[in-house]
Simulated assay, not measured.
Amino acid sequence: MEYTSGAASWQKVLRRAVAGLLPRRPRQRRPGWSIGVPVIAAAAGLLFTTTATTAGGTSLREDRRPQLTQLIEDRREQVAESEERAARLRAEVEDQTATLADTDGPVKAQRDRAAASRQAAGFTALTGPGLTIELNDAPQPQVLPKGASNDDLVIHQGDVQAIVNALWAGGAEGMSIMNVRVLSTSAVRCVGNTLLLHGRVYSPPFKIVAIGEPAALRRALAASEGVQWFMEAVDHYQLGYSESASTVTVPAFEDSTALRSATVPR
């Protein structure tokens, strides 16, 4: 057995004590990529799982315009069927009312009173002098005019409303849009560059026919501020506008006649 001197033993003890007091060198850190790789892999897995769940076995990049077109066509057919059924029901009500009027005096009196107002209400076709106006989108140029956008090249709801309001102000007795009779309370709306009227969608060109004195109608168009702005756009962006005077016909109003409000005549 080997013995060490007391001095050497004390030296070792002191070295260990000093080493314990000194700060230890930090261990070498793991490279950042070794931590990032698992995180990225987990995120990618979550993304793939979410995509698969959303797709439901279909392609997310599939062009669904054909399905949308078919949906619109199906809805149009449903609307057409509903309109035909409503027309048959109205005819049945009219026939039964006429039969009842033969034996019921008050019913006959009210029926005659309503018939006298049918023309003023727009429920009969009208023929007379008037204007035919056609609005159309501008041709698509190779390069848009400076400061213009594609919205400037199409007919908007405000353009149609400006023409219609001016014609009413000019004394129009009857009016049709796309051969559909409209009243002063008819709403004209646009969806993109298509016209929505009484639940039907129409594409340009938009044809407006108004019965009235052509000279008075033209004066009203010229005096309308909205029409003036539209005519500036016609000149600047080459929007389509045509106007002609002749003997015209507007059909009878065939939309729903359900009352939303009424007052008792005095």
Rank of each mutant, 00 (worst) to 15 (best):
T185S: 05
S261C: 04
G170D: 00
Q70A: 11
M178G: 13
G128M: 01
A216K: 06
E2D: 14
E83I: 13
N179C: 12
V154K: 08
S82N: 13
I155H: 00
G158D: 11
G128V: 00
I208T: 04
T51P: 09
T194S: 11
Q11G: 14
S59H: 09
V248R: 03
V209P: 01
Y202R: 07
I40W: 11
T97M: 07
A42G: 08
A121L: 10
V160T: 10
R24K: 12
V107Q: 03
A162Q: 03
S203H: 05
G226F: 06
A220P: 01
Q28I: 13
A162T: 00
I40Q: 10
I163D: 02
Y202W: 05
G20F: 06
V248D: 01
A258Q: 12
R85H: 08
L47A: 13
T49Q: 15
L131F: 00
L197M: 04
P214C: 01
Q28G: 12
A98W: 08
W168F: 04
Q110E: 15
G36H: 11
S184C: 08
T257H: 05
P205A: 06
R24T: 01
G6H: 14
L131E: 04
E92T: 12
D159P: 06
V18R: 08
S59P: 05
S149K: 07
A220D: 02
A215I: 07
A116P: 04
A215P: 03
V227M: 00
S242C: 06
Q11E: 13
V154E: 10
L259N: 02
P106H: 04
G36E: 12
P106N: 04
A43V: 07
R64Q: 11
P145R: 10
L239H: 03
E83S: 06
F123P: 02
I211Y: 02
G36S: 14
K12V: 15
S5T: 06
K146G: 12
A41I: 11
V188A: 02
L259Q: 05
D95A: 15
